[in-house]
Design a protein around this nucleic acid. Structure first.
Length: 207
DNA sequence: CTCCCGATAT
DNA sequence: ATATCAGGAG
């Protein structure tokens, strides 16, 4: 796959170019972060940020969201993909937070994954963003970037995550953010900007 | 595996 | 017209 020397060079360059990288989702607290990440599935951060101001005004916390009218909630999020499922999951999630976790959104992976609409990837992103957990989360960007760089040949996000954790070991949270932003703006799916990529000397997929 | 399913770029 | 966007549930 990749030599240890190559991996360390790629890691160092990501950290150098994206020090302090942060999600582009807007949020003010853990509740808002979780909702924003849940909405962002197969949807751009920009679109989510257009939705959340009115959404958080209508439902500022888990208690108000738990009592939300389903149709009203759908109206607020219907410009985002899979909004029918997401609306149902948001209300279920809020009810679980109240009934199973005393109204506080849990901050451990096992508990987060029990919430409706929250899988491993969403749980990891919340933990990475909220408390800088040393975790990797593999979304479509991280999957594409790591495969183009030859860091993984795994066929699933879960297996790719294991490869990336083995390769990088530390500073996974910053590396996650770095790979997302790099994938979104430079190592794009459709027209990657290889000519202006800081990794083009070492990339195996240079186009 | 399939279904969910709107906005945007190309 | 088609591919893609911080995936998850059944």
């Amino acid at each position: 796959m990749r030599s240890k020397k190559d991996i360390n060079e790629i890691k160092a360059l990501f950290l150098e170019h994206f020090s302090g990288a942060k999600t582009e989702l807007n949020f003010k607290n853990l509740y808002e972060l979780l909702v924003a990440v849940m909405l962002s599935a197969q949807c751009t951060d920009k679109r989510v940020n257009l939705i959340t101001p009115a959404l958080f005004e209508a439902y500022p916390d888990a208690h108000s969201l738990a009592k939300a009218n389903l149709s009203s909630l759908k109206l607020l999020i219907n410009s985002c993909s899979f909004f029918n499922n997401k609306a149902i999951n948001l209300i279920k999630m809020a009810n679980s937070v109240i009934s199973e976790f005393g109204g506080e959104i849990p901050l451990d992976e096992k508990s987060l994954v029990k919430l409706a609409g929250v899988g491993q990837k969403t749980a990891h992103v919340v933990l990475i963003e909220y408390q800088n957990a040393n975790l990797m989360a593999v979304d479509t960007h991280v999957f594409r970037v790591s495969h183009r760089l030859g860091l993984s040949k795994a066929k699933t996000p879960e297996a790719t995550e294991i490869d990336l954790v083995k390769a990088f070991k530390t500073e996974l949270n910053t590396l996650h953010q770095a790979m997302v932003l790099h994938g979104r703006y430079t190592c794009k799916a459709l027209k990657p900007k290889c000519n202006e990529c800081f990794l083009n000397h070492i990339c195996k997929a240079k186009i």
